[in-house]
């Protein structure tokens, strides 16, 4: 895979809850392709289906119909094609949360190396990789600190380091800058853009933050479960 190759290919994906009069269509026949190196924003009002789409791409929500390919591998075609979706997430997808969701009982470095530990990396290599990432994200000096003692910006950078640790090709971010001031939000987006280029990764971000719109390659609008504008 190289820059420009399609990493996320969503074809006619729909998701509905309930049936009959109680049926709610969260997504309706959505098609989306994201290429390696692209940084994309998913926009739309509350209830438009942004998080639903993100969860489907992240393999944590079953689509009602459609087809999903990740990094060239078909993963959903009417049903999940792999039984080990957690392993798939571990190997191919990195998550960045609005509230960073670092494990409070681990240090910054341990939060990062945990992913590598789960992926089967040797402990020393995992620690080395975690340290490299934290240094790269300029929080290496806080490696031994628990999340409760990190500032919002530091915690978010540690969360980004965790998302990138196992070199995933797809990074899904849900409001990654919501807890940051505008200067730090710009810095985080610059960082994600840089990583997308360097690691040939696709980054899909759900955001409402207009101040960072100019940092995206594409802005994709959803309304009532449909892609309405790009």
């Amino acid at each position: 895979m190289a820059i420009g190759d399609i990493l996320v290919d969503v074809q006619a994906v729909a998701k509905h809850y309930g049936d009959g009069e109680t049926r709610v269509d969260a997504l309706r026949q959505v098609d989306l392709q994201v290429r390696a190196g692209e940084v994309i924003a998913l926009l739309g009002p509350s209830g438009s289906g942004k998080t639903t789409l993100l969860n489907i791409i992240g393999c944590i929500l079953d689509p009602s119909s459609g087809r999903v390919m990740l990094d060239g591998e078909p993963v959903f075609d009417g049903k999940w094609l792999r039984s080990d979706l957690r392993r798939l997430r571990l190997d191919k997808i990195g998550f960045i949360f609005q509230a960073h969701n670092l494990l409070p009982f681990l240090t910054a470095a341990e939060n990062v190396s945990l992913v590598l530990d789960l992926a089967g990396w040797p402990a020393d290599k995992g620690k080395e990789r975690a340290r490299e990432l934290l240094d790269y994200l300029e929080v290496g000096h806080r490696a031994g600190v628990k999340p409760a003692l990190l500032s919002g910006g530091e915690a978010q950078r540690v969360a980004i380091a965790r998302a990138l640790a196992n070199r995933p090709r797809i990074i899904l971010a849900d409001e990654p800058t919501a807890a940051l001031d505008s200067k730090r939000a710009q810095l985080v987006m610059d960082l994600l853009r840089k990583l997308a280029t360097e690691q040939e990764a696709s980054i899909l971000t759900v955001t409402h933050d207009e101040k960072i719109f100019d940092r995206f390659d594409r802005l994709i609008h959803l309304r009532d479960g449909r892609l309405v504008d790009e």
Binding site: I60, R86, F97
Partner: peptide, 8 residues
């Protein structure tokens, strides 16, 4: 969170 990041 553990399940999301891929913990078995």
């Amino acid at each position: 969170t553990l399940k999301l990041i891929g913990a078995p």
